[in-house]
Design a protein around this nucleic acid. Structure first.
Ligand SMILES: [Mn+2]
Ligand SMILES: [Mn+2]
Ligand SMILES: [Zn+2]
Ligand SMILES: [Zn+2]
Lengths: 139, 139
DNA sequence: CGCAGATTTTAGAATGATTCTAACATAGCT
DNA sequence: AGCTATGTTAGAATCATTCTAAAATCTGCG
């Protein structure tokens, strides 16, 4: 007997199944938080806090596990803007970022708003996996 | 009586004084390693190891202190490519980076080799402090 | 249903980078 | 040389993240 899935978790359940991940209570909650309200940028800690505020019972270790699993199956991508903590981004299309150094807030810049032209060739034996453009903001 | 400075540290001493920093034994050694052989990308740990190999007697805490002081006075700049550790760059002119994700190696890309056109305006109340372009390499 | 085996979650310990503390040493000035 | 601000350091502390191993849950099958 498959367990009953609350209606508000149906979409999340579909995404998890499509990605080949089992639908656990914790993953459903995190997926719902992440994917049901437009693009998000979260850290493990911010997501854990948000889940806790919604009454979820899960551990920080599970949040880390899920963030990495979601990233591995292509539901998230990692963004590195600060040595010290990792951000995870639900926006999978190519785009760039404003980073507010003071607050730690990340904002998307649509790909079309920045033209990166004439990329150099990748060095011998390597290939360019990703092009990140970060506009660091002060004040 | 000012202490005697070995000839090989003369250049480093000049840079430190120009930057308003006292010339201590530890700073002279680190400045010599950093600034006497072309541009470098170091981490605290790599610089500490390199200094130790040259026979320097200093602590890792001092390496951290110096990296931050050198950055504060504009002798270095910090580069963020990996959540987990900070890189410091002796190349102060505007330029971009190849980052070998597997080895952690950083390589400069001269500014002229990448054209970043049509930057969006900074959001209300903020200004763009820096534009970082990272080409992440795999394989 | 009711299990069994595989997967997932979790508390708490461990790790790794970095920062802090507060005592000791040195640089720079008189 | 002596004074005082500044710099160095060992070791503890902090913070994000990962690991461990045991308990809980999921899923397919009888
Ligand atoms: Mn930071
Ligand atoms: Mn890393
Ligand atoms: Zn984004
Ligand atoms: Zn560089």
């Amino acid at each position: 007997m498959g367990k009953v899935i609350e209606p508000r978790f149906e979409a999340a359940a579909g995404q998890l199944r499509a990605a080949g991940l089992r639908t656990t209570r914790q993953r459903l909650m995190l997926a719902e938080i992440l994917f049901s309200q437009g693009h998000r940028h979260v850290t493990a800690e911010s997501l854990f806090t948000e889940a806790a505020e919604r009454g979820a019972r899960l551990s920080l270790a599970t949040v880390y596990n899920c963030l990495h699993q979601f990233t591995a199956v292509g539901l998230l991508r990692m963004v590195t803007v600060d040595a010290g903590r990792a951000y995870f981004d639900t926006n999978l299309s190519p785009h760039h970022h404003f980073y507010y150094e003071r607050s730690g807030e990340l904002r998307d810049i649509p790909e079309a708003e920045i033209a990166v032209a004439r990329l150099p060739a990748a060095p011998e034996g390597a290939k360019i996996a990703r092009v990140d453009v970060i506009l660091r903001l002060q004040d």
